[in-house]
Design a protein around this nucleic acid. Structure first.
Lengths: 207, 207, 207, 207
DNA sequence: GATGAATGAGCATTCATTCAT
DNA sequence: GATGAATGAATGCTCATTCAT
């Protein structure tokens, strides 16, 4: 009967539900993943999920937070290890695609939620924002491609490109790998990452 | 009492339903766009939709066909006007982004259907294929980025890049504009297109 | 433009619809045979059926009348050809089973309607009665098994049995052939008829 | 706070729904007995039925199992008490008609389901089989008329009749009582049973 | 903490019917 | 005579949520 025993159980249950929800969403897609099916995978009653999260929106928020934390843990060290903008860009691409390759179901789940989730009040994921702690949000900002491109221009490493446009393009090119690999299991995600590193290295050079 | 009056009514209704469905899907997302809500927007009973299309899958097929026809009508002349691979690539990017700028809700609807649609038999859109006439499918193939990149390598215009990787990257970068502009109404889609043309022009040059 | 041209067309259409309806019901069962599917088989619009019969109940009445007329045409001569009660009983059994063998889909349709039909006011077929002309109803009465059994007792051919019970039993035994043959295509309806003739011949003898 | 309180509630609800469903089907016929109407009779929301049975097919299976169990409980002791084939035949007829007299609506419901039910996959009741436990199915087999007739021929009690034909005839004659009594409330089911016993006793004698 | 039971809104679909032409 | 278009009620089903225990 340790004082925080209840909290420990609570935390474990939540983690367990989040984990199973991610698996379920990755396997069946967001809309086929009802609270009941997720609870079934956990091996508890459907109402347990409601008990721990209050409602489905809160559960999704917890899932998204967990997914972002995973991405952060992988990417942040790799990007921070590089000093130059060019190095950070390559690291960002490689790190993100490593995430895709290593944590496939997590990334699929995130994509599924991103494109399918709709809150009780009709809001989409990008409208409710990333449900992370302030310091984690700060870490996330360090990965921002806009920042990297702006830095590269300042240091003269990159040509006078539009950081916003380039960041959007890189993000899109990375995201495309997930879609692509979903339809084509033979798609070589890591190889694609190297092709992307070369392409964007060329695309950022001075004319 | 025109001989094809009945056909005229039928055609008009179908077009009207398709149009309203596109608007609804673009606004609310695919899964929030029930047959009932679409019919309400048209101003008819829900069963009218079933009368004209048989079932929801057929309605979606009609929508998708219409959306692809729109894209084709815009993009094909622009891409075919160019002779060189480099020209075709730039034209493809510009044409696609022009589509995005001009037919925003149509493109959002297509994206929504592409990532959310699940047929009665459990198939996703890419599994059921594009419901177009053979000659229109042939036209669609002419826009394929893989083909353009392969051509450019053959003619020596492009470096020895991977057509699959580059095509995936360009598609992703283009698609990102849609997501981006959804969250940020000030995002300049056409300007982004010009930035993309420059970036991929550089990225395809010989080292 | 013969004066009864319209009536002729009308009659032909009705007959055509009735025929197709019988086929459809026999094939798909009563509940799968919607007005639309029947009309499709005829090759006309669904509303044509409504035009000719007013509503579905009237159509079913027309079908049932037609089916009883078919049975009458087959059975009446065979039963009336016999003079003795014993002969009439055997003839009735043989005639009815001949109907079952020869006009299988008609009999299946009649069975389907008998057990599934429910009028707009909630009445079953046996509650609405047989929709035949008075003289045809009189002919139908001549086939009644009760009459035959009562006659046989009067003439001393049969033992002192209960006409009602025996008639019910024979009707049931005949009807069972249809159910049986539906599930088992190898079931020999005519052979079953002969077995029935023997069985009920024995069952009616004096002790 | 009894340990099996939850199970008790569940069992009671299921039994209650099955009971009301039987009544409804017997009264209105299978196809007029929607899940909604059955739930209304129980006094709960329609989705309660779905909660307890999953879908309509499962509910029907539960109903059919219950109906067969009732028949078994009545008929098995009566038939097994007899040693001779002749005795078993008479007992079968009497027992089945006792069922008909005592559990009228149950038998009507079973008939309705037998001739009208069509599963979600398009199968009829005789195609999906009787949803009973193996040992109950074994008990059911002991009541089979074919078995009794074959036995009687072997022991020399019966003439060289066709077990299949006779079984079909007896089944039909028994079933006819149900139809008959539906149209004519004065029909004496038990008396009919005795008449049937005599008739089939005669029909099975050596010539 | 956890559960089973129940709810009500929403969904796509089927169907007989109506009606102007 | 015949048609296409539209309607509204009904059906089975899924789901997130609520609540007493």
């Amino acid at each position: 009967m340790r004082p925080n025993d209840a909290t420990f159980t609570e935390t474990a249950r939540r983690a367990q539900i989040v984990e199973c929800a991610i698996e379920t969403i990755a396997e069946l897609g967001y809309h086929q993943s009802s609270v009941r099916k997720i609870a079934e995978r956990v091996g508890v009653a459907m109402s347990v999920v409601q008990y721990h999260f209050g409602n489905k929106d809160e559960m999704v928020a917890a899932i998204v937070a967990e997914l972002y934390r995973t991405v952060l843990a992988i990417m942040l060290p790799m990007v921070e290890a590089e000093q130059t903008a060019r190095g950070k860009l390559a690291a960002h691409i490689r790190a993100h695609l490593k995430c895709l390759a290593t944590y496939r179901s997590q990334q699929i789940a995130l994509m599924e939620i991103g494109s399918n989730y709709c809150s009780g009040t009709g809001q989409r994921l990008h409208e409710v924002g990333v449900p992370l702690e302030p310091d984690q949000l700060a870490d996330l900002a360090k990965l921002e491609l806009e920042t990297i491109f702006t830095l590269g221009i300042e240091t003269g490493e990159f040509r006078a490109l539009s950081p916003t446009s380039m960041a959007t393009a890189v993000r899109g090119a990375i995201g495309a790998a997930l879609l692509r690999s979903t339809g084509d299991p033979d798609f070589d995600v890591v190889g694609y990452g190297e092709d992307l590193v070369v392409a964007f290295d060329l695309a950022t050079r001075h004319l």
